[in-house]
């Protein structure tokens, strides 16, 4: 596994930084690819491997402006992988940022928190 996984943002997809050494994990921007499953596949693959030997504490930030429903499902899948890390005794700190007044993104963060055993810190950015 590469220590660092990076995807540049486009007008329809977010920037993704997964950096084990810097302990920096960020997904930010817009996410509305036509095929979200395909777009997030490599991120899932990377995290599957990372999950085997994760950092003591993984800090993962989501800062999405908006997304399509296909991306909702894929983001949830990422959160599920992070949840599995906590089950192995390692710590994961997830922060879900939303813009002031963006009730939809606030709601998404709160729902994910409710649906998972993972604690998600939902914060105004």
């Amino acid at each position: 596994m590469e220590d660092r996984f990076f995807v540049n943002a486009t007008s329809e997809t977010p920037e993704i930084i997964l950096d084990k050494i810097k302990n920096e994990f960020i997904i930010s921007g817009k996410s509305m690819p036509e095929d979200a499953r395909e777009f997030y596949q490599s991120t899932h693959n990377w995290l599957e491997t990372y999950k085997e030997k994760p950092n003591q504490i993984t800090r993962f930030d989501f800062s999405l402006d908006y997304f399509n429903s296909g991306s909702v499902k894929q983001v949830f899948k990422i959160l599920c992988l992070l949840e599995e890390i906590t089950e192995s005794g390692k710590d994961v700190k997830v922060t879900w940022y939303y813009k002031k007044g963006d009730e939809l993104m606030l709601m998404k963060g709160l729902e994910f928190d409710k649906f998972l055993d993972l604690t998600i810190d939902v914060r105004e950015s």
């Binding site: 036509e34 095929d35 979200a36 499953r37 399509n68 429903s69 296909g70 991306s71 909702v72 499902k73």
Partner: peptide, 8 residues
């Protein structure tokens, strides 16, 4: 590609 969740 997420159609079901989209309708919901």
């Amino acid at each position: 590609k997420g159609a079901a969740i989209g309708l919901i």
